[in-house]
Design a protein around this nucleic acid. Structure first.
Lengths: 122, 122
DNA sequence: GAAATTTAGTTACTTTTGGTAAGTAAAAGT
DNA sequence: ACTTTTACTTACCAAAAGTAACTAAATTTC
């Protein structure tokens, strides 16, 4: 191995792989980002805010984030049901990293979009 | 809208969505990270380093990254073929953001793994 | 008093995405 | 002449994600 002995090949021994396998899905990062901006949101509010996520996928995304300890779920015993989601401390500690990515996206989206349309690759 | 007028709902007008739709796939971030650590790599080298990516998916991932202008592809007119991939300046500018995420992953993987196994959610 | 509304999901089914294995091309090595 | 090497592509199959309909129980509307 050349540089600094990083082993990317085995997911178990490689936190990067582990985390990317988990958050490198379609919705997790976006959910964390939004919860970071609104601190408490109900299921439907989150869904409307994201706009294109299906109920099913939002449900499984939240379940995984909760399992990992990034998001808390607070259920109010009402009918119709009320459930509030928010970031845990762990989730909050991840937020700035994601926001830094967002900042980069904002700064570079124009260039990327341009490159992409020039290349013709969808 | 409550906080700072972020619109997440429409992918076209929302760089975050756009970028997450693009890099929120299974391999892109990992490829960028590895290329960032090794500066020039051939197709097979990349594949071995990642370990579990299929040739097909590595090919389409690289094609997209190239289209976006994050990765360059240098072909040497030899037989058998030699192609070297490396990050562009744009790709390099994204690298530290991803590395910051990696650092977080290293610091928090134990806690996450623990939470995950306690919860029972795969 | 029956019907519609509301919320946070789940379930069955379809589509899209990703993985597997085999194939290709052309030169160099045995 | 046959195998090896590299960077892919293609056809086929499995897994993940999207769609639409359904649920439960109280509250509101007709």
């Amino acid at each position: 191995m050349k540089k600094n002995e990083i082993n990317f090949a085995e997911a178990e021994s490689c936190p990067v792989r582990n985390i990317l396998d988990r958050f490198g899905d379609k919705w997790s990062t976006l959910v964390i980002l939004i919860l970071g901006n609104y601190d408490k949101l109900r299921f439907n509010e989150l869904q409307k805010m994201i706009g294109t996520v299906s109920q099913k996928m939002l449900a499984v995304t939240l379940k995984k984030l909760e399992a990992d300890g990034l998001v808390t779920r607070k259920v109010y015993p009402q009918v119709p049901p009320k459930v509030e989601y928010s970031l845990t401390e762990l989730g909050l500690s991840l937020l700035p990293k994601i926001e830094s990515l967002v900042q980069w996206a904002n700064e570079n989206m124009v260039e990327i979009t341009e490159n992409r349309s020039l290349s013709g690759v969808k």
